[in-house]
Amino acid sequence: MNIKKIRRISLAVLASAVLAACGTSGTMVRANGTADELHWPNPVSTTFNKDRGTFPNWENLKQIRSGMSKDQLYDLIGRPQFDEGFRVREWDYLFHFNTPNQGTEGVTTCQFKVLFDNEKYARTFHWRAVDPVGAACPPPAPAPVTPPPQVIIREVIQTPARIRQ
């Protein structure tokens, strides 16, 4: 083999290794979308909504199910806040929830991880408390606000028996 061919092969192998490293945050995802050990990105290293995360819609979170496509998840909860790389099989989010008397200034921060199978369908979902550590993630959904009952008052006016002209 000549030197040029060896260099090309070496360069191709190196490029493949670099791309493979870019495609994962360290979690080894199985073909069925599960993992033995999860690796979480640093919460301050978000790339979308820099260092902020988002406040998700509760109704959208309730709709997330195994077997959803990436497009369906994107429609429900938006794009992941972390730069996952190329052809990834996991998405990581940073979510905030209004939780009076808990967390920093009444806000609980959680990380949410979605693992995809080989066919790119969401299979497993994982939560991790960021602030406060050990908090319930996601926290219980807020109770629906019901308006006070309306009171209808009817006043009956009697007409006089005899009308004057």
Results as ranks from 00 to 15, higher is better:
I6T: 14
V88I: 11
K4Y: 15
D71A: 09
A143F: 09
G85Y: 00
L115S: 01
R123V: 12
R123L: 09
F82P: 00
S25I: 08
F125S: 11
T34A: 10
C137R: 10
V130K: 04
S25K: 14
N32D: 15
P140E: 11
F82R: 00
K70R: 02
K50W: 06
G33D: 09
I64V: 13
Q63W: 02
G134K: 12
P100Q: 06
V107L: 12
G78M: 01
R79C: 07
R128S: 14
L61W: 02
P160G: 07
S66G: 08
D92M: 01
T54I: 09
I9M: 12
C22S: 06
V145P: 08
Q72E: 13
Q158F: 15
P147H: 07
D83A: 00
P43N: 03
V29E: 01
T24C: 04
A17F: 15
G67D: 08
I6C: 07
P144M: 10
C22H: 06
A21F: 10
Y121T: 14
S45K: 10
A17L: 15
P148M: 15
D71N: 07
Q63N: 04
A35I: 04
A35K: 07
F95Y: 07
N57S: 05
N32V: 13
F48T: 03
D83I: 00
F95D: 03
R8C: 12
T27V: 11
K5H: 11
R164C: 14
C110G: 09
I157V: 12
I153C: 13
G106A: 07
E119Q: 13
I163R: 13
A141D: 11
N2A: 05
L76K: 00
K113V: 06
D83R: 01
L19Y: 12
E90G: 02
D117A: 09
R154G: 09
R123N: 11
N2W: 03
F86K: 00
N2M: 06
K62W: 04
N118L: 15
V18G: 05
T146Y: 14
Y93G: 01
Q81A: 02
V88Y: 00
Y121Q: 14
I163A: 12
D131Q: 13
K50T: 10
M1V: 12
P43H: 01
Q102F: 09
F82L: 00
A143I: 13
L19N: 09
E155P: 05
Q158L: 15
V18W: 11
P142Y: 11
E119N: 13
E105K: 14
L94E: 00
L76W: 00
A141G: 10
K113W: 07
P147S: 15
V114Q: 01
A12E: 10
T46V: 05
G106Y: 03
D92W: 01
P132S: 09
Y93D: 00
P144K: 11
T124I: 10
Y74F: 06
T146V: 14
W40Q: 02
Q158A: 15
L76D: 03
A136S: 14
I3L: 12
S16T: 12
M68E: 05
E119R: 09
S66M: 06
N101D: 06
N32L: 13
G26P: 05
I77Y: 00
G134E: 15
P149W: 05
S25W: 12
N32I: 15
G23V: 10
D71L: 03
Q111N: 07
E105H: 08
Q102T: 11
E37G: 05
